[in-house]
Design a protein around this nucleic acid. Structure first.
Lengths: 343, 343
DNA sequence: CGGAGTCGTTGAAACGTTACAAAAGCGCGG
DNA sequence: CCGCGCTTTTGTAACGTTTCAACGACTCCG
């Protein structure tokens, strides 16, 4: 058994010496293998394996002027939506040999700033971010440092920037249309703080659908705003609706956690779903299909969102001259389940 | 508007020149502020702000011989358990000024290896890992490179290594005792692959509880093993139990996703929970309290797990001489809800 | 046989920071 | 006014890699 003693990292020079070549050649084997003669290359590769050489990323970054690391700044790493996005990011990054630096802003702009600073220190090659606020300034600061940025789940506010998002307006519209198609005429939209763009857009889409159906959005949709978007808040909202005898025909929730809470609140009060009230959520998180009454929802291509964003970012970093900036907007998908099934 | 052109990173030399001091002094301001005279320090700090200087982490790492980055290798970033752990890790790391490199092994040892390699290249200061297999060898390789490792949700297999885990045996025992206390005498344990240590331990704990209650573990517990630990598999298992007329008094599931699926399967077949069958899960994920019948579960201190692991790792890295290795084992906690409530 | 063109390899100079020995400045007792 | 100890600052040599001009060895063609 070896003692936990000295770390003895082997450098490119030792590899070079042992293989009887110059350090430059070893570097070429590592970075431009095709420029090295076959037998030299295989000799060097053999020595690399023998010695267990691993390139020192920092030295490489320092000299080459850029790293193989990308930053990922998320609003809430505990939220399944972002988690799925992160999984997509990690997937592609790992395939392409990039490392992912994780930052969780937890909705706090100060913490987001701190993370951006750390990313800047680490000289990340590029940055994927779901901005915690609409304010574009902190990002412009990052861009001025020469770090490429791709926005995730947020439309770019300038044409020379890539973004990947999902059409929340269309999703809201889709959800409301679906509810209306079950015969509902009086809707409730249970949503989080209106400061959150996603909540606003989804509500806007729902209003549009109601208007297009010939109803008056002002009276046909009641908006119930709750402070946090979790199940507890949803349950509370449902209890209020029941006790206030303001039960609509159908309820649209701005995310699935809210919807699961609403579902629970309704069922416990003896309200039947979908019999008395139809219910639809948003995000189609895993658990939605598993709830007592399988929850209809709006599915977003989360994993893909992460992958594509990463793809765009890497392309922008590696081919800055040919890269075409794109603002990609995915369409969400209606997943109809039991909670909106009506005879 | 600035053109998206030249990245103009300002170096320590320029700061030094502008502040009328030597580069060494700037470095001291950055790393050992107390060794610099007050007025010099404030002058340098002002220039740093004016110029928007950000230390080049790679140069620092290269020269200093160690980075301010820790690696985090998880089995499944889409699983709420690991996500909560990751949030705890990110929390503390960010507080201490460390960056977190994220790796998601997805249970694939090959991918785990690839990630470990990337971590090695980045010269992470230390590594947090929930190993995807029981095999300690890949980790020993990492340790030989001089990278400190703290195991997360896994007991260390050697005394000179830190680990942070939760007592799964106790958790399983706790769950089964609770079920027995409701009057149950015939249990089913729905679990994932027995290759997963957590599943084995929880089952072992349950068997112990049954034995201690004077029952024969061989006949009082039926084990149902499913290939994947998600809701679909749970529902399927429940349907099999119902159709096979093998309904027990109580069901213990190795995680909440399975339990939610089982719950759904039972309710749809007209089996009442907890009336006919009591049900308990494991992990106490957010959604458990929100399901149609609030799910009893075993709660683990996930966030804390992440924080403490990070704490241990940073201490081991920064104070190698005074650091005492610890194998911390948290105790889980029973959360009794409706699904096990009996009159 | 000489010169042009290829291909593979080399050597040395960076990249931005930190560590450390040495120097400079300063106050004070003799 | 010297010399001593103290604090503060400086200059310089690394750290491990990549880049690039230059070089040597071949081949090919005239």
């Amino acid at each position: 058994m070896t003692t936990g003693s000295a770390a003895v990292p082997v450098s490119i020079k030792e590899v070079a010496a042992r293989a009887g070549v110059s350090p430059g050649t070893v570097s070429n084997v590592l970075n431009r293998p095709h420029k090295v003669a076959d037998d030299t290359r295989s000799r060097v590769e053999q020595v690399i394996n023998e010695l267990g050489f691993v390139r020192h990323g920092s030295a490489s970054t320092l000299r080459a002027g850029h790293s193989r690391t990308i930053g990922l700044s998320l609003i809430d790493i505990a939220n399944p939506f972002f988690t799925d996005v992160a999984a997509g990011v990690e997937d592609l990054a790992s395939e392409r040999g990039y490392a992912v630096l994780l930052g969780n802003s937890a909705g706090d702009p100060a913490k987001e700033d701190r993370n951006l600073r750390v990313f800047a220190e680490q000289r990340v090659r590029g940055l994927l971010i779901t901005p915690s606020a609409d304010d574009p300034r902190p990002l412009d600061v990052v861009r001025e440092r020469g770090i490429r940025v791709v926005l995730v789940d947020h439309r770019a506010h300038r044409p020379d920037q890539c973004s990947v998002a999902v059409n929340d307006f269309a999703g809201g519209q889709m959800a409301a249309e679906h509810l209306l198609s079950t015969g509902a005429t009086r809707l409730v939209y249970v949503t989080g703080p209106s400061g959150i763009r996603q909540c606003r857009d989804r509500g806007g889409g729902a209003a549009r659908a109601v208007g297009e159906a010939g109803l008056d959005p002002g009276s046909a949709i009641e908006v119930v705003e709750v402070p946090t978007m979790n199940a507890r808040a949803g349950q509370h909202a449902a209890e209020n609706l029941v006790s206030g005898r303001r039960l609509p025909d159908a309820i649209f929730c701005a995310n699935d956690l809210l919807a699961l809470g609403v579902l629970r609140g309704l069922l416990q009060s003896g309200v039947r779903v979908p019999g008395d009230v139809a219910l639809i959520g948003y995000d189609d998180i895993d658990f939605s299909a598993a709830s007592a009454v399988a929850l209809s929802s709006i599915r977003q291509p989360t994993h893909k969102l992460g992958r594509i964003a990463t793809e765009l970012l890497i392309d922008e970093c590696e081919n800055p001259q040919t890269h075409a900036h794109r603002q990609i907007l995915f369409q969400p998908e209606l997943i109809a389940r039991e909670s909106t099934a009506r005879p």
